[in-house]
Structure formats: C-alpha cells, structure tokens
C-alpha cells in the first residue's frame, strides 16, 4: 500500500518530545554537564574532560560499594524470587480466603520506605525492640549497630519482608491466568507435581517473572531509604550501598563533578544488567 508522505506529521510528535525533554533529557544533560566540569565556587566552571569518570572508576571506596551492591541484589533476587513463587503457588486460588490473603500480601507494599526502615530499626533494637530483645534473651549475640553481619541480615530480612509480596502477587496473577484444562490434562497425563510446575506453571509465569526480576533487581540495586534509616550505612561502611555513597558525595560533600560522573556510571550499570536479564530471560522464548 502506498502511504502519502507528509513531513508536517512530525509536528504531531512534538508534544511527546517536549514532555520527554523536560522529564528526562534536560535533567540528564545537566548531570552530563556537571560530570565533565570542575568548579571552585562563584559559578565558575572549568573543563575537566573525563577526569571525574577516571576518579570514580579508580576509587576503592566506590568499587567496594559496587561490590556490596551487587552482592545485595544477588541475595535479594536469590531469596525473593523463589520465595515469591513458592508463596504464590500456595495462595488459595478462589473464595473468601483468596481475598483475605491478597489484602494481607499487599499490606507491606503500602508502607512508605522510611517507615519500613523505622519499623525495623525499632524492631531490631536490643534494648527495646521485640526482635532484638528476644534474640538477645535467647542467647544470640545480635546487634545490628555493631556487627556488620547482623546489619546485613537485618537489611536483607527487611527487604524480603517488604518486597516478596510484590513477586508473589505478580506470580499469582500469572498462575491465575492458566486455564483449568492444563491441570486436568496434566492429571490425565500422570504428570508429577514437579512436571506440572516445570512444564505448565513456570512457562506460563515467565512473562510476569521477567517483570518481577527486573523490578526487584532495579529496586534493590537502587536501595537507599531503608538502610539509610536503619543503619545509616554502618557499621563502618558495611552497609554503604551505591546510592548512600552517592548521596554522601553529592549532598554531604557537595562534590558535584564526581557525583555526576558517579550517577552516570551508576545509571549505565543498571541499564546494562537489566538488559542482560531481559536478553537472557527472553532468549528461550524466541527460540524455534
């Protein structure tokens, strides 16, 4: 079919361009702008080339934070994805209890991040917190303020508590969309429980699972508020994740250049890892 060519049609995409420019491109460009300049105040800027990028990449402090960040996201995904699937498989499919469970599952998702941090901060305190005090009373040497392992454990448990229900709810939606005939056919084919999961439930969940993995990866990789409220990045630098470090650089020390370079690298790392997840998880789908 012949389509008429009319260049005035470009005007129709103008509103979107303007919107995206203000919401994303212009703010990002200011960051790019800072990342290649240095300043000594008085609004005087000097060209610094890729110097800040060099500095950020060479910084042991930032490298250590990146390592912690990757470890944290890996732990979070390794726990929340299987756990979420497991919970979804065991949620009631219909009836009164299905609604009750759905509401209960959604509750943690409704709590603001800093409140979650505060809740666990109090909950884990050895002197007055229910968790901390109970653990101490049982003879465990638990103290998230002094002990890096305890601090990590608390943050991981807090994140699992906060976000596993998101994974579970997504998987639950995926499971609900499987017609009964599939389960009936599996019973007739004498498929084992594992085969039903492997060949029916998992493939049907793969779409939502991809979303769950990406969301949980990005969120955990950018985590800030909860550990900031709970441990403030300590003890020492044990729980200083990338965003906490970034905020210290940008706002604490007002080092705009390094912070801008840091932000851009941070952004690219998230983009890269998300792309890898997406490619790996959809590769199987497109195979003949």
């Amino acid at each position: 079919m012949d389509k008429p060519v009319n260049n005035r049609a470009w005007f129709l995409v103008l509103p979107v361009l303007v919107l995206v420019a203000f919401s994303a491109v212009i703010p990002l460009m200011t960051v790019v702008n800072y990342s290649v300049q240095d300043t000594f105040g008085n609004n005087q800027f000097f060209w610094n080339g890729l110097g800040w990028f060099q500095e950020v990449l060479d910084s042991d402090r930032i490298r250590a934070a990146l390592g912690r960040q990757i470890l944290f996201s890996a732990i979070i995904l390794a726990i929340e994805i299987p756990l979420g699937i497991f919970v979804a498989l065991n949620m009631p499919k219909r009836g009164f209890w299905a609604s009750v469970v759905l509401v209960l599952m959604a509750l943690p998702l409704l709590i603001p991040w800093n409140v979650v941090g505060t809740i666990w901060q109090v909950f884990g305190r050895v002197d007055i917190g229910l968790l901390g005090h109970t653990l101490a009373a049982m003879g465990f040497d638990y103290n998230y303020v002094n002990d890096p392992v305890d601090a990590w454990a608390t943050i991981v448990v807090m994140d699992v508590w906060h976000w596993t229900s998101l994974v579970a709810l997504l998987c639950y939606a995926g499971l609900q969309s499987i017609p009964d005939a599939y389960y009936q056919a599996a019973r007739i084919d004498q498929a084992s429980r594992w085969a039903v999961f492997r060949h029916i439930e998992l493939p049907k969940m793969s779409g939502v699972l991809l979303i769950a993995v990406l969301l949980r990866f990005m969120d955990s990789f950018m985590i800030y508020t909860e550990p900031f409220v709970l441990t403030g990045g300590g003890p020492g630098n044990a729980t200083t994740f990338l965003s906490i470090d970034l905020v210290k650089t940008a706002i604490g020390q007002f080092d705009l250049g390094p912070a801008a370079a840091f932000s851009l690298i941070y952004f690219l790392v998230i983009l890269l890892i998300s792309w890898v997840f997406y490619t790996v998880m959809t590769a199987q789908k497109d195979a003949p």
């Binding site: 017609p179 007739i188 060949h199 493939p203």
Partner: peptide, 25 residues
C-alpha cells in the same frame, strides 16, 4: 485419555516430547 476443547500443549517442549510425555510419565 481425554482431549479438551482448547488445545493444551506443553509450550516449552518439542512436539516429540509433548507426544511422549504421557508415556514417559
């Protein structure tokens, strides 16, 4: 054996594995 109104196949398997599935089990 029962065949349903709408096709029920195991998406991730090949046609061969689909047909062999009830026998393998």
């Amino acid at each position: 054996a029962q065949v349903f109104q709408f096709p029920v196949v195991y998406d991730t398997m090949t046609v061969r594995d689909n047909l062999a599935f009830p026998l393998k089990n």
